[in-house]
Every structure is written in C-alpha cells, then in structure tokens.
Design a protein around this nucleic acid. Structure first.
Lengths: 320, 320
DNA sequence: CTATTATGTGGAATCGGTTCCAAAGAAGGT
DNA sequence: ACCTTCTTTGGAACCGATTCCACATAATAG
C-alpha cells in the first residue's frame, strides 16, 4: 500500500502539499496535476485510520440497535443512514441482540473504535457512559443527562384506549413484556389511565420477549382464560401472534376479537386482516436522532440536552 | 483522554511494559499491579484507532447489505455476527439500499476504514475491487475470483416446480425482478427447466423491486390478464403481495390460487394463510461466510477460492 | 563456577496521516 | 525602490499505539 510520502516523492513535492491537495489549502495548478497523476500511477488511497488518529475525527457515528429481527429497527436505521449519508458520515451499526448486560461494554468498545458520536436505541445507559455525544432514541426514560428522541408513547396508549372504547369494548387485554422497556411502560400507563377514566379496568399479561411467538402463546392462554373482546398488543409483532391465536381458537378478527398493535411496521399492512395499529414515526425518529448526533459532533452544539417527542398516529385497518 | 504514556508515567514503568501488559508478554507481578491501578486512577482506555494503525489489524470485518427492509438480511446479519462475536471481532454494517452504482465506492470506503475482511451480500463486484479478503454471499455468480457462499438456487427452483406439478398445476406464473440478481435468475432457470421437462411452459412477469408492493401490483395485473392457477414468487415479500392481490380479487388461497415463495423468512409463517415457501438456510449462509472471512483474515488461509452451496428446503404450509 | 536460558525492562523507531512554522516568490500599493 | 499581503512550499513534530533491540537479572544446567 502506497503512503502519502510515496505520492509526494512520485510527484516531486512535499508531503504537506499532498495533504493540502486532499484537505483544501494552497496548491498550485501545476502541482495539483502532478499529484493527481501520481495518485493514479500508484493507485493511492487515503488511509482513514491514520487520518482519524491524527485529526481526532473519524466522520462516523455508532448506532446501537437492540433487535434486528424486529422490522421496527431497520426503518429507524434507514432514517439515521439517510441523514448521515447526505453529509458523508458513515454509520457503524452495533447489535446487542437485546442483551442489556453487554451494553456498557459495547458502548465503550464502539467509542474506542473512534466514532464521533453514538445513537443508542438499546435502552437505559449510565450517565457519563461515554466521553462523546450520546443520543438516546426510542427507549427513552426520565434521564435528563442525554439528548433523547422518542414517540409520545403515553399518547399512543391513549389513542388505542379511546379507539377501543369508541368501538364499545370493555373486556380489554393489554399484552405486555416483562423486560424493562420504558416505551411499553408508558404505553401501558396512557392506555390504562384513559380506560379507567371511563370506568374500565383493563387486564394484562406479560411475556419474556416482544415477538410473534410470545404474542401467540400469551394470546392463546389469555383467550381461553380471560375471554377478552379486544387486545392491545405492546407491538405489531405480538399483535400478529394474537391474530394467529385467535384464528386458531376459532375466533374471527375483528368480529369476535379486536386486535390492535403498536409501531406501524410495514409488515402490519401485509397480513390478512391488515392490522389496526398505533404507528410511530419510526423513520423520523431516526432522522431526528441522527441530526442531533451530527450537530453535537460536528457543529460544536453543546447546549442543554434536548428532548424531542414525536406524535404517534392511529391507523385503522381491518383487525380492530 | 490519557494515553499509554500517561499510564506508564503514573505507574513508574516504560511504555513498552504497559503495552506488554495489554498484549501479553513479560510483565512482573509487581508492575502488573502498579499498571492496573494507574489504569484505574486515570480511567484509561486503549485507543483502538492507534492500535489499528500500528498493527495493521482492526479485528473488525465489513458486512455489505443491499436491503435492510427485507427481513432476509437481518437473519443473515445475525449469522455473521454470532460467529464474529464469539471471537471478539466487530462487524461493521454497511447498507447500499440496493444502489449498485455506489457499491465500488462503498467497498473502497469500508476498506479504507481499516476492516480486515469484507463479506458482501450486495451483488456483483469487480475482481480486484479490494486488497483485503472479500467473501461473496447469497448473490453469487460464476465469478471464480472470490470466495462465495450461497444457496443452491437452481435446486430451489426445481423444488418449487416439482411441488406445483405434484399438485396438478399447469397455468403457472413466475414473479420475477428486472434487476440483475443472480439468485433469482438461477431460481428461474431451475424452475423453468423442471417444468418444461413435464411439457409445461411457465409464464413470467417482472417488476422493479422485490418487495410487497411490487408483488401486489404485478399479481393484480397478472391475475386479471393471465389467469394462473399457481404463482411462484421470486421471494417471500412478493409472495405476500400476491396473497393480498388474490384475496382482493376474490380468489381463495390456496383453493383458487396456489402461492409459493422463496427465502423462508419468519414473517412468512405469521400471515394467514401461512406461506408455502422454499426456505434458504439464511442464518447458515451468514455463519459460513463469516467463518471464511475470519479464516482468510486471521488464519493465514490463502488457499484457492472456495465455493459453498447450501441446500434449500421446501416448507409446505397453507398457501400452496 | 560459568554458560545458557528464561524473565523482565525502557525507550527509540514506526505506522500513515495532519498541522504548524519558517521561508520564499509574486503581486499590488505608494 | 520598499513594504505589505497573498500564495505556495517542504519538512519536522505530532496523534497513540506496537515492536524491536539492547540490556539486566534470575534460574537452571553442565
């Protein structure tokens, strides 16, 4: 691999001149040409690792994702990527596979690898976990020590509750998860409060994960034991499991059982009946988180921590 | 940020000794203790960027993915990640969003950032595109210049064909894509050949992308114009679109129209009716590609290029 | 008791960039 | 002719690690 010194020698100029050629600065037209052809001759490429070491900037940010198998996250990633791509910043994706214990280690490791900021969608983090800007997205608690971008989960819960009330339901079940998940807790709070205002006390059961299988098994048991007329699932994946369980139990959706999900992943529109759901502005979540990260990392923005809360939207389709 | 020299000073030893502390080498027990407490005092962390520059190894590999929104890829990613995580190698994910023109640029850029090998699932690449090991996965053509891991797509096509024949179909439609996609071409080849052996000539239509929407619109038109009794879609996402189109056209699946997909993503089991599909060993594809990458990058493996072809499997569910 | 080997150490040189500084030529103003 | 200012240049020093070399001491063998 040729180095910048090889290029300088080949072009008959100093290394400083070659560096200025790349980074902007005074270079005469004559030398510009000679450097260009030296680069061609040697098939030279800048070593970004050395550049990062030398400048302290890598023009890349880290993105921590808890669960790739939930289509929610690929959309979020898309939002982050589009923003970063437009300004030439690379996104380094790190996947925790929902393993909370590894999170501090992962944060450190990605920071050590030289990213300029981190966007974390994987949940709670200790204040001061990193020395570089850290933006929390989606799973955002009360912590004031970070920038945070999230959907208004509580409002989302209310939306779901009001809708089910308007359809005359009163035996209502919330399908939850036993893991610590701020978003789900807030949804539940908004949902429950809105129902109780109308004198309805919702039932609830919780599983270990928020996927199809857990939704399915939880719903199977609950349909048998609790006989709800409506189910609000903590996310779309679980709601899909509920539909399957209902169908297998001989219930028609939505005639015998209304099912409503949360997230608004594409997938929820692909099934029969298509899923009624409280949609998060997933892509926008990513966009705003990325913008914040870039402004913290590159625009010297060090104002007070920002909290963005985006509104959810009820999408009525066939299932509820 | 403290450096290794700060640690050395604080501990009263030379930098060489601190480096040996981290990398293994002779360090006396006494100095080990002093270095450890110096690290604690200073909250020191190794700078991986400097280490990479100095050693020429980053203990990370790049993974190029064409489309995150297709659940196929998150599973593949999972396979790669699990293998890499088990040996402490980081995976740097890069997303092309199906933009073939940017591929050469992206490959260069990720190589410049110092990864030790690249696994590419995004399709055709020029020989000699990189100076580091490059493993192609999934979309693998005839090129002999790279290691390659893929499903036996042609056999998958045959599997689909034989199944549809065994169910007595003869008006059979293949839903394809107009983009260059080796996997799809091979599926089609196997499918068509197996049908023609039985004197059946399949019909085919192609769209611009392999997603739900294109599957849906293509199928809507084809159902009206071509009146097939069975559809083999180039992937599961498109097959889901076909089911929707069939339902909306008043056709029952599978009674009036058999639908069969390709890939075997989880999602295909979540819909009603669950999708009959030719499943790829997606996770294993990732595992084998990652193993190859690691062995090329770190075990000095520079034998001849390896071609792995894994068998697909027909999964009969409700739709076909 | 000496030769050999294993253990342990500090620091200079290196990886491949950027940046700063001193110096010099060209252009423009008076 | 002289003083500024702008443009242009080469190269040393630096970013923060690793690695190698020269050297010192302890342990073991003959």
């Amino acid at each position: 691999m040729p180095t910048i010194r090889d290029v300088a020698r080949q072009a008959g100029v100093g290394v400083g001149t070659v560096s200025r050629y790349f980074n902007g600065g005074y270079v005469s037209e004559k030398n510009r040409q000679r450097i260009l052809s030296a680069i061609r001759d040697l098939d030279y490429r800048l070593n970004e690792v050395a550049r990062t070491l030398s400048t302290g900037r890598s023009w890349s940010i880290g993105l921590i994702i808890p669960d790739l198998l939930n289509p929610f996250y690929p959309i979020l990633i898309h939002g982050v990527e589009d923003v970063c791509k437009s300004v030439g910043v690379a996104v380094i994706l790190v996947h925790t596979a929902e393993d909370v214990t590894s999170l501090p280690r992962l944060l450190r490791s990605v920071e050590q690898r030289g990213v300029d900021a981190i966007v974390c969608a994987a949940g709670k983090v200790d204040p001061g976990a990193t020395a570089i800007p850290l933006i929390m997205v989606d799973r955002v608690g009360q912590q004031t020590s970070f920038d945070a971008v999230s959907t208004d989960h509580m409002e989302g819960g209310r939306l779901a509750a009001r809708y089910l009330i308007s359809r005359g339901h009163s035996r209502i079940l919330f399908l939850s998860v036993a893991l610590e998940n701020v978003g789900v807790e807030l949804r539940w709070q908004g949902f429950r409060d809105a129902l109780e205002e109308q004198g309805i006390t919702p039932m609830t059961v919780a599983g270990q994960r928020m996927d199809f299988q857990h939704g399915y098994h939880l719903a199977r048991a609950a349909i048998r034991d609790l006989r709800p007329t409506a189910v609000f699932a903590a996310n779309d994946l679980m709601a899909l499991g509920v539909i399957r369980a209902a169908t297998e139990s001989g219930l028609r959706v939505p005639e015998d059982l209304s099912v409503i999900g949360f997230d608004g992943i594409d997938l929820s529109d692909y099934v029969t009946p298509p899923l009624t759901t409280v949609a998060q502005p997933i892509y926008e979540l990513g966009v705003h988180a990325a913008r914040l990260a870039l402004s913290r990392a590159y625009e010297g923005n060090n104002g007070p921590n920002q909290k963005l809360k985006l509104p959810p939207q009820l999408i009525v389709r066939g299932s509820g």
